[in-house]
Design a protein around this nucleic acid. Structure first.
Lengths: 342, 342
DNA sequence: TCGCGCGCTGACAACGTTGTCCAGGGCCTA
DNA sequence: TAGGCCCTGGACAACGTTGTCAGCGCGCGA
């Protein structure tokens, strides 16, 4: 009558299951399930017995098994670039809040701006059968997600549009924001304005550069190639780019930075200069108010919230055509953008 | 011979399963499993047939089912206070990197500094059967996790110790850091030093206050109750606290801030003052270098990394006694802490 | 009093995967 | 040539839960 050794696949440190609870309470398996899920049709007395058994055994429902049976995981995935970037923290948090309101958990993953890693992550989340996916693309080709989307995984892109597939996307107005920022510098008398952006693979980088060019063109100002620099946001790269456009025979008198990573380095570089240089940066930054940095602010939390709401509408069965939502940006003048040309 | 309607529980938009792949490839179910998992013992020819069927059907293994069978979810949970706080972003990212190196995904949740929400989140993660849990406690009683830990969910606490249970914890040296920061102010001639901290429920807040008191005591300086303020990090609260200790008959000449949230508000408040006030803050902040803010820096990424490494060592079966790891802090003088008393 | 219906309960299958085990066939050796 | 072994493949059960359905007992109406 010795207890046979448990199945070798048994892990979880031998946690009690509903079966164990049922045995202890002297009821059927399904009755335990009913109690655990608060379903109707259980006598108060039976319910009490089951509850006692649950307490005594320290039972907790295995949601892994539940998921398998129900077909919904009540979880959504978020693939972003880098959670350590202060732009993405609030975005992720906003997504989490919406998910929470819908009873879902959030699985985060950072692509580190690497398209392969983005794909690997997104597909891993699909294999987990997240109900939905929010992606901040690193790559430019998302056809790899088509089978997954067809198979029922709702997908929304944020901050940058999907590449080569038709899908929901929520964006900030990068073009308009950059154009307004550069126009602001022009309005303050600048004619030679530098632009330091992110890698040209990235949609927002291209859009903001386009905004810069549009503002210059609006004012009928020619753009010298030496004033424009796209590339990684590595501090050293940005430092050199900044230094380069401030030296030479025809230095810029103002700089527009394409995002928050560029801004922190560019501002450091500019602060060391004798001659003041006007500056406007895309993205607001904490303490930028104290430093008097003029920025084009986008609302990261609103991006995340809007995308998540779109996602859950899809999960609720709304099935209209993929939509593009564009959120406005705001120019916040704080001093650096109002410096006149030297 | 009409196709019978599929089982009503069938979701996932009718994704193909291994069974479907097996049928199409004309092989057994287990053979598909072998191919998908790269197990040995399949002829190249059979493998090719299976691969083709997988491609054709767009099959992707359902990790939910896999998890159920294998007993390991290859995921870890992280309960923190607020992902939007720039202190937690890098911490979370560091945990994610370690998890990734171990092939695990990370599920994030924010407690919003609410003990009930912390518990709800942590238990939800346990129900998902995460392999391990990293918790930045909001509450002070974690006995609710005992059954889970006994049942095999490895748990490590970060930034603040667990309450009323014995568990691994990774901390920064809050006491030593605060003491060093306040001693630094004293060394620059200050005798009346204010302390603005977080809520007294929070361990780090208490430790840092203790460090403040120790430094004052070391220098044989009495502490006036009016110089000490604990409470929420709401800007309005911090603003008032700062203003209060700077007014009155015996105003402080220096302020020590208990964390980054307090710092950003206190620095704003101080910057508007005519009379310069010395300042040291706990936690480094982006752009603090440009603002000349002296800080006690802790390494958020190292906290996360250390905790995650500890967690995965546990998951690898290491079973020694719960340990407390304390990471050093660094004083970074940048000007604000070196201002002499007015 | 009998029959019917309803409220409660439990047996059973299914979700999609993996571990175990056995069968069949080909090849090598004695 | 027979026997044994290895290699490949597949049938089956199990992971822990929930949906379906049937049965039981009791109360109420005719």
């Amino acid at each position: 009558m010795a207890e046979p050794t448990r199945s070798p696949a048994h892990r979880y440190g031998n946690r009690p299951t509903m079966k164990d609870v049922a045995a202890r309470a002297g009821v059927g398996l399904k009755t335990v399930s009913r109690v655990v899920n608060g379903e109707a049709g259980v006598t108060p007395d039976t319910e009490r017995r089951v509850q006692e058994a649950i307490e005594a055994l320290g039972f907790r429902r295995n949601d892994s098994a539940r998921v398998l049976r129900k077909g919904r995981t009540a979880s959504v995935g978020l693939v972003l670039e880098d959670l350590a970037d202060p732009f993405y923290g609030p975005l992720s948090r906003a997504v989490e809040e919406v998910a929470r309101a819908h009873g879902a958990l959030l699985i985060n993953g950072s692509s580190a701006e690497d398209p392969d890693r983005e794909q690997e992550l997104a597909l891993a989340l699909c294999a987990r059968r997240v109900d939905g996916l929010i992606v901040i693309p690193a790559g430019t080709d998302h056809r790899y997600l088509e089978p997954e989307m067809r198979a029922g995984i709702a997908t929304v892109f944020v901050d940058r549009p999907a590449g080569r597939i038709d899908a929901d996307v929520v964006l900030s107005d990068s073009f308009g924001g950059a154009r307004a920022g550069v126009a602001h510098l022009i309005a303050h008398g600048h004619r030679r304005i530098g632009f330091i952006g992110d890698q040209p693979r990235i949609h927002t980088a291209v859009e903001r550069l386009r905004g810069y060019r549009a503002a210059m063109e609006d004012a009928e100002l020619a753009v010298d190639d030496a004033w424009v620099s796209l590339g990684s946001t590595e501090p050293e790269r940005v430092r050199q780019a900044t230094a380069a456009m401030l030296s030479g025979p025809d230095p810029v008198t103002a700089v527009f930075a394409g995002n928050n990573r560029v801004t922190v380095t560019a501002v450091r570089e500019l602060s060391g200069r004798a001659r003041p240089v006007a500056f406007v940066g895309f993205d607001d930054i904490e303490l930028a108010d104290l430093l008097g940095i003029t920025v084009i602010a986008q609302d990261a939390a609103a991006l995340g919230r809007t995308a998540a709401e779109r996602l859950f509408r899809r999960l609720d069965g709304v099935d209209d055509a993929p939509a593009r939502t564009v959120l406005d940006t705001v120019l916040i003048p704080r001093g650096s953008g109002e410096i006149p040309p030297a």
